[in-house]
């Protein structure tokens, strides 16, 4: 029998449509001009086609970001869906870029597209990976810092999915605090 063309096969739909954004730091341009929407996807198959096609995060140059957000949410604090929210933040020292960064990012993406946080998945907005010379960061953004139950549940599941030891503590920071911080470290609103 003829092989069915791939575009006619049933793909596995995701609960949400997601958008991939790419940020490349070019100091000659304003911040918004450096942020580009790459593409959107809403099936398991299209997620992998995209993931397998683009550069691994660990191979990006310093100053670049990937962001994955639900369709309709821009990857910035100012977006209406983000402004009351915050982020679970994972910071990685430089030596972990080679060993852990791509693995942690992929696990993060699978948590998002697989809706890993049960009834609290609706609180998830997206995730960002920052490649920086002084240390890389991965952050999972949620919509509302006051939804304590949701934030804590998401943090616990996320930490478990990343395979972090119970001795490791990760913190959740409100975007409002990060945006107005006077030192380089915003205070943690929650920890798990």
């Amino acid at each position: 029998r003829d092989v069915m063309p791939t575009d006619q096969m049933d793909k596995h739909p995701l609960q949400n449509r997601w958008a991939l954004w790419f940020f490349k730091n070019d100091k000659s341009k304003i911040w918004q001009a450096n942020l580009r929407l790459v593409t959107k996807f809403d099936t398991v198959e299209d997620f992998w086609a995209l993931h397998n096609h683009i550069q691994l995060a660990s191979k990006l140059t310093s100053g670049c970001d990937y962001s994955i957000f639900k369709d309709g949410i821009e990857p910035m604090w100012e977006d209406n869906k983000n402004k009351r929210g915050g982020r679970w933040l994972i910071t990685l020292p430089k030596q972990q870029r080679r060993t852990d960064l791509d693995h942690f990012w992929l696990e993060t993406l699978m948590c998002l597209i697989g809706e890993a946080f049960d009834e609290y998945s609706d609180d998830v907005c997206g995730a960002v990976i920052n490649i920086r010379a002084k240390g890389d960061k991965i952050a999972l953004w949620t919509k509302e810092t006051e939804n304590k139950e949701a934030v804590i549940h998401i943090g616990r599941v996320y930490k478990e999915r990343l395979g972090l030891s119970s001795k490791v503590v990760i913190g959740y920071q409100a975007h409002a605090d990060t945006a107005t911080k006077s030192s380089s470290i915003a205070k943690n609103k929650f920890v798990v």
Binding site: T6, A49, G114, S121, R161
Partner: peptide, 20 residues
């Protein structure tokens, strides 16, 4: 209901041919 996929299910599709 909500379309939830665990990591093993998702990983099973990583190297399947797909087109976008």
């Amino acid at each position: 209901g909500k379309k939830q996929y665990d990591r093993d299910f998702l990983l099973g599709f990583q190297f399947m041919p797909a087109c976008i």
